[in-house]
């Protein structure tokens, strides 16, 4: 008897030859899980999606006052709110994505222990949700540009490239922490700490030009430095300079993180259902 479906072999430590094929087959699940999270988040909230605007907006106001007015940090010739916001967009995306991603496996434990699908779908969807928020808060930036009569240059067209790097940074770190979180719930407490710390050591409230030139390379070991500098370079145009060696270091690190995150995730993925 002929059979249309291929034979599936389940063995211990099976080399999942069809893994990426499976991920592709379940591609709609990425969308559905992200869609669920967004729907659920704004159900039973009075102002709904506006929350995605309020948080970054207020943070931007605070940073502008603290760093721009009180600390009088240089703004590279652009309105300080726009300088702050160009840095805050990627940072907030990274921060949200990382905390959602690292908790995603735990909060979907019931799915993982009861249904099969490529586990990679879960953390990826969490990052996609944050990406949606990112695009929503992008409208604030547009608003600021209108208010300050700020016209971006051609460089804004390179923005998708930097968004991709931000995505990779969030994925790599997120996968790593999500996997660790399944094994050791301690990481639930580590993530908020990383984010709090990261906000201050990343050039969010200020431009990275305030860092002395001889230390710029060291500063670039923080992968988010490259991402944020890239965003500023693309959005602010004009005088904003991209410190290329630093950017290369950051981007390289992001790629290593992503590669390692996926490998680590794949290695432990098979035992998630037993451990979670």
């Amino acid at each position: 008897m002929g059979y249309p479906s291929p034979e599936l072999v389940i063995t211990a430590g099976r080399a999942q030859r069809h893994y990426w094929q499976d991920v592709w087959r379940y591609r709609e699940l990425f969308y559905f899980l992200a869609w669920r999270d967004i729907l659920v988040r704004y159900k039973q909230t009075a102002i709904g999606i506006v929350w995605a605007l309020i948080r970054p907006f207020l943070t931007m106001v605070v940073f502008t006052v603290v760093f721009g007015r009180i600390a009088q940090l240089p703004s590279d010739g652009v309105p300080y709110p726009i300088l702050v916001f160009a840095g805050m967009l990627p940072w907030q995306f990274f921060a949200n994505a990382l905390s959602e991603c690292s908790n995603s496996l735990i909060s979907n434990a019931n799915l993982i222990s009861k249904v099969y699908f490529p586990r990679l779908v879960v953390p990826t969807s969490a990052v996609i949700v944050s990406l949606v928020d990112f695009f929503i808060s992008g409208f604030i930036l547009l608003g600021l540009m209108v208010v300050y009569h700020f016209v971006p240059s051609w460089r804004i067209l390179t923005l998708p490239f930097f968004i991709a790097i931000a995505f990779a940074a969030a994925m790599g770190t997120g996968l790593l922490l999500a996997t660790l979180n399944v094994k050791y719930r301690d990481f639930r407490y580590v993530v908020p700490f990383i984010l709090q710390f990261g906000l201050y050591i990343s050039p969010v409230g200020f431009s990275s030009t305030v860092v002395p030139a001889q230390w710029r390379w060291l500063y670039s070991l923080n992968p988010m430095v490259g991402v944020i500098d890239g965003f500023r370079w693309a959005i602010l145009g004009g005088d904003a300079q991209l410190y290329l060696p630093g950017f290369a270091i950051s981007t390289g690190l992001v790629m290593v993180l992503l590669w390692f995150g996926i490998r680590y995730f794949r290695a432990y993925e098979r035992s998630f259902a037993d451990v979670i």
Partner: peptide, 17 residues
Amino acid sequence: ILSRITEPTTGEIRIRG
């Protein structure tokens, strides 16, 4: 194991479908 949620320690299963 049949539903591929967890993997076996030894042995194998062949499923057509």
